[in-house]
């Protein structure tokens, strides 16, 4: 059994190919145990871009973190305002 996670892309980030989505525009992924944030970044072709990654409402600075069942992972390009 894989791990089910949801992925949100913001600020003009787009997926490199088509993935299943729900009505909230979240991409639905099933990944293997020990799948890392870095693996997901690579899958989404975002490796060469500066990013802000938020997992379950917390800013993630460790891209070697293992993904867990039910994680909601949001990706942002560098943005600011105020």
């Amino acid at each position: 059994m894989g791990l089910n996670i949801k992925v949100r892309l913001f600020g003009g980030l787009t997926p490199p190919k088509s993935y299943p989505k729900n009505e909230s525009n979240e991409y639905l992924f099933q990944v293997e145990e020990n799948y890392r944030v870095a693996n997901l970044i690579e899958e989404l072709s975002l490796s060469d871009k500066p990013l802000i990654v938020v997992i379950n409402g917390l800013i993630c600075n460790d891209y070697e973190r293992a993904i867990k069942e039910g994680d909601v992972i949001s990706f942002f390009p560098p943005i600011a305002g105020g």
């Binding site: 913001f10 600020g11 802000i52 938020v54 949001s74 942002f76 943005i79 600011a80 305002g81 105020g82």
Partner: peptide, 16 residues
């Protein structure tokens, strides 16, 4: 980021 979306680009990240 700012030229494309303006300051309101913050809504989603601050909410997240």
């Amino acid at each position: 980021g700012l030229p494309a979306y303006g300051t309101n680009v913050l809504t989603n990240i601050i909410n997240e």
